[in-house]
Each structure stands twice: as structure tokens, then as C-alpha cells.
Design a protein around this nucleic acid. Structure first.
Lengths: 158, 158
DNA sequence: CTTGTTAGTTCTATTTTGGAACTTTCAAAA
DNA sequence: TTTTGAAAGTTCCAAAATAGAACTAACAAG
């Protein structure tokens, strides 16, 4: 199977990967969360080739994670901003940062710490059940067939 | 910058990506969370080339996300199981699934639903502050220089 | 009219993938 | 005792993606 067919798999993880699952894309998004908006800035901070960066930004615009905004006429210059859809990737970023902090940071400690503006404390992101608020992990959650798949199953059975 | 240098960036997201940030790896892990353990099963379910699968599994073992466990002698056969480190990737998976459900599922609805064993309800994973329990998003969290980076800054300044 | 800034393209060489066939080690069946 | 058949890989080659560096375009400022 080729990578560009991956979005066709009826799986939300695969579909998400079809948007953010290639090299550099998530780092571009990380920079966007840190406030970076312009081509040159992305390029310098990430040390990504201009070619690649151009391609990744365009794809992110296509998929609705970023949008281009004119910030200067003559010559026309655009910057890249996170859309709502892009902002909603924050949990993914934070979950990855949390894992990296725990397992990859080494003795030096985490390179970035997160402060919650609500309570003013350093935090780690914690995943909880949307219904009862209890913390959850792999063992406390059971994946079940959802409508997006049972529909297919029905069709196949007809 | 080459991909194999990415782990050297002092960023937990980059370091996490150095482990799970390439094609297929996260889908392999998804299958592992669904209970898949054996080479043939991964291969059939993912339609990944055997070559790639072999490589990905080995790298995941190297990085401590999976471990090999002998399940049959003569001929010796091993299966791949998630370690604690691997299990702890669940928030990443769930965050991605949540985003995919929201933005990529289309009319058919999410392909998989998650039931919390604690309360028995269908849930979406929600990110909350580890200190005060309030839900968090990009705007309510401020990233600050952590020890892993301020150490470097000190060194550079000496 | 030269230099600088920003945002790209183009080119080539190298790496990484994808697809398909082949190998190894044994157990069980014919 | 040859044949079939799992299971878990390897090997080979062609195709695609990536890295690095140089080049281009559209202006503004000096």
C-alpha cells in the first residue's frame, strides 16, 4: 500500500496521519503553536530545506490546518496561521511532548515546561474520561466498532 | 538536516517523532494496542510490505516501545508486545483518534468508539490540567524555557 | 544601480519506500 | 519420505521522497 492511499483506510488515526504523519509536518505545527508565522522563520528555526518547507506549508493549507493571510501588499506577502482545525491538534502535540519529557529528556530535564494560565502552575497534560473525569490509560478504555465501520460491514453483508 | 539527526534537537516533540514519526510506525503501534502481536498479523492487517514491517518492528524494539517475547520454541518464534513505555503512547494515539473523528470521519461517523470501563460510557479523550483539572487548549497553556534548555543556554553563555 | 528582504523554485544526489519473489526452520499430512 | 504449509523474515530492483545548494522574482531602501 502506498502512503497516499492511507487516508482511505477507515481509521481516524490513519486519516490523521495522512495530514500530519510525514516528516517535518508536526514540527512545522509545533512552531506555529509557538507563534511562528512566516516562511523565513520556519525555515531558520527548523533547518528544513526551503523546498520541503514550501511543500509542507502548502499541504497544510490544503488540508485546512493552516491558512494564508496577507500581511503586506507590494510585494504580496503571506503568513501562515493555525486555523481552528489546526489549533485542535494541540492535544496531539502536548501528548507527544509529555511522552518525550518522560522518556527522552534525559538528565537535563524537559526542554520546555508548560504553565497553565488558569491556575499558574507547571503542568503535564493528563487525559481524562470526558464523561466521568477519571484519568484514563490503555487498559481502562475499550475500543468498539463505531458507525463509520459498522456501516461498511452492513454494506458488505447486503 | 537529515531525519536521523532529529533526535538531537532539544525538543521533546522532535525526540518523540524520532521514535514514532515515520511512516507506518504509529499504525503498527495502533495495531499493538488492538492486541496484535505477531508479524503475520501486523502484515496482513496493515498491508505494509514485510520488509518495512520487519524494519519498523526492530526499531521499535530498539527504542523500547515493543519487546520480543518467545511464544514457541522449535522453531523459535517471537511476538511483539508493548512495554510500559509503549503503553504510555496511548494518549498520543487517543488524541490523534479524537482529532480524526472530529475532522476526518465524514458523514459515516467515527469508525471506532471508545468505551470507558470505569463508567461504561462512550468517551472522547479530554485533556485537562494535571494540577487543577480544568480542560486545557492551546490558548490556556504557556510554554516556558525548561531545565533541558536553560542548561544549554547557560553553557553557551559561559 | 547595487544591496537586502522575503518567499519561493530548480537541480542533482542520496535515502527511503513499495512490490514481489525468495529463504529458513520446523510440523503435519499424504 | 517427499510434499505441503505456517511463520518470520531477506533480497532485489524500481519508484518516490528528501537534502543540500544554488537560482529566481518582486519589490524597497540607500
Amino acid at each position: 500500500m502506498r502512503w497516499n492511499e492511507i487516508q482511505d483506510i477507515p481509521c481516524s488515526i490513519a486519516r490523521t496521519l495522512s495530514v500530519i504523519g510525514d516528516r517535518w509536518t508536526l514540527l512545522v505545527i509545533r512552531e506555529a503553536f509557538l507563534g511562528v508565522r512566516r516562511f523565513e522563520q520556519f525555515q531558520k528555526r527548523l533547518e528544513i530545506t526551503r523546498h520541503r518547507l514550501s511543500d509542507r506549508l502548502n499541504k497544510l493549507v490544503e488540508s485546512g490546518v493552516l491558512r494564508k493571510a496577507l500581511y503586506q501588499e507590494s510585494p504580496a506577502r503571506y503568513e501562515y496561521r493555525l486555523t481552528r482545525k489546526g489549533m485542535d491538534l494541540y492535544p496531539v502535540i502536548l501528548a507527544m511532548a509529555g511522552w518525550g519529557d518522560k522518556y527522552m529528556a534525559g538528565d537535563a530535564g524537559p526542554p520546555v515546561e508548560y504553565v497553565h494560565l488558569g491556575c499558574g502552575k507547571k503542568i503535564t497534560a493528563t487525559l481524562v474520561c470526558s464523561e466521568c473525569g477519571e484519568p484514563i490509560d490503555a487498559k481502562s478504555v475499550k475500543p468498539m466498532l463505531g458507525p463509520g465501520l459498522s456501516g461498511l460491514a452492513k454494506k458488505a453483508g447486503e
